[in-house]
Design a protein around this nucleic acid. Structure first.
Lengths: 223, 223
DNA sequence: AGCTAATCAGGCGTAACAAT
DNA sequence: ATTGTTACGCCTGATTAGCT
């Protein structure tokens, strides 16, 4: 959706209005007295007054973006000519648009993952319960699935749930600090893993850490 | 991972050069020549642009940010005085820093959620299997947990898995197009939900109101 | 050929604002 | 205060020109 485009009323671009002092003014005033010895570079400072592209320009570019988010020089130039703007501006716009889209998708996926997660968590709990209440219709007694006693199994399940809980909490906490402090790795599985026990981690393929999975690379060729 | 590669054949790769030139320069240079007569919006520019804060300034602000991401006017002014910068700049910096941090956390959480999701999925599968292979030690026969036949249960489980799979796939696909085309809503639960059947939706709290599975544009946490 | 240096686009982070 | 926009520097990876 995102149907916006207001621009209805004025456009406050008056000739020389200097309502605010826009930091820049003061900047070059303080050129000395800096003992920081950090004048590494940058002397190419130019500046212009804030500016927004027109609704029409944006609309056109957005349309183009839909089936070609990566226009080349030629295309950019064309666009710039058609819309009466600098090629560089077009370039900037597409660049910014791309990053914007990316983070938008990321956010979207985030909420989705969150929901999915909750779903799985509940489903999981159900399974646990089902396993716990399993009852053999043939002999009438508790099924005691597998070869361990009822108590032991119960304990195992409880254990697994607790560990999972810890894991979850710690991960949530990790969001508020830079470094995670306790991972589930710190809490070794209590004992011999039972074939029936998912053991919360399901670490079947734990090869090495550093899960650097950057998916989604950039290609988007458009002849 | 070659991004675009438009048939590397020669063609005429004309050197249409657009020597880097801070748009602004060109902008005011651009005079009429445009029959478009739509030049209602002309942007005016001054000069002087771009600037980076020094390492020291950033360092100090970052330190401050750690235990106070929301400095008030008073504090901002103090900081600006200490670091020799405009109060407005300080304000901007904290603003930008906040959004930066936010998206950083979001990304972080995203990868985490992804991992968690995978974990839960595997664990889930294990439970399913466990339930499937359940065997009563007392009578030796298959446990046939609950009150339905082995076949029926098997079917239910299989069904659930399939539906989940579909749901997952479609959600992934939804990332690549704007609109999701099929949601799990399209595939109604086959029949009467069984107490033992997680039924993929895990709508445990079916109180009233349409089975809300619609995450996506509804709520999002708000502190 | 093999290597290095200059080129170039794109991604990333950021500064300064406007709008909500 | 948050969110979105515009402009832009810097870094990186891929392609190419130039030299030993």
């Amino acid at each position: 959706m995102v149907g916006k485009q207001h621009f209805g009323v004025n456009s406050n671009i008056s000739e020389d209005d200097e309502i605010q002092r826009t930091v820049h003014e003061e900047i070059n005033k303080s050129s000395s007295e800096n003992e920081d010895a950090n004048s590494t570079e940058n002397q190419l400072l130019k500046r212009k007054r804030y500016h927004r592209h027109t609704a029409h320009q944006i609309q056109e570019m957005e349309a183009f973006f839909k089936d070609c988010p990566h226009p080349n020089n030629r295309q950019r130039k064309e666009i710039s000519q058609e819309l009466g703007m600098e090629p560089l501006q077009v370039k900037f716009w597409f660049q910014n648009k791309r990053t914007q889209m990316k983070s938008k998708h990321e956010r979207q996926e985030n909420t989705h993952l969150r929901a999915e997660n909750e779903k799985l968590r509940v489903e999981n709990m159900r399974y646990r319960e089902a396993l716990n209440n399993a009852c053999c219709p043939a002999c009438g007694g508790m099924a005691t699935i597998g070869d361990m006693s009822h108590d032991e199994r119960h304990l195992r399940i409880e254990n697994a749930r607790l560990r999972e809980e810890i894991d979850r909490i710690s991960s949530i906490a990790a969001k508020y600090v830079g470094k995670p402090f306790t991972k589930s790795e710190d809490i070794p599985s209590s004992s011999i893993p039972h074939p029936m026990d998912p053991g919360v981690a399901a670490s079947g393929k734990r090869v090495q850490g550093k899960g650097n999975d950057n998916y989604e690379t950039t290609n988007a060729g458009k002849p």
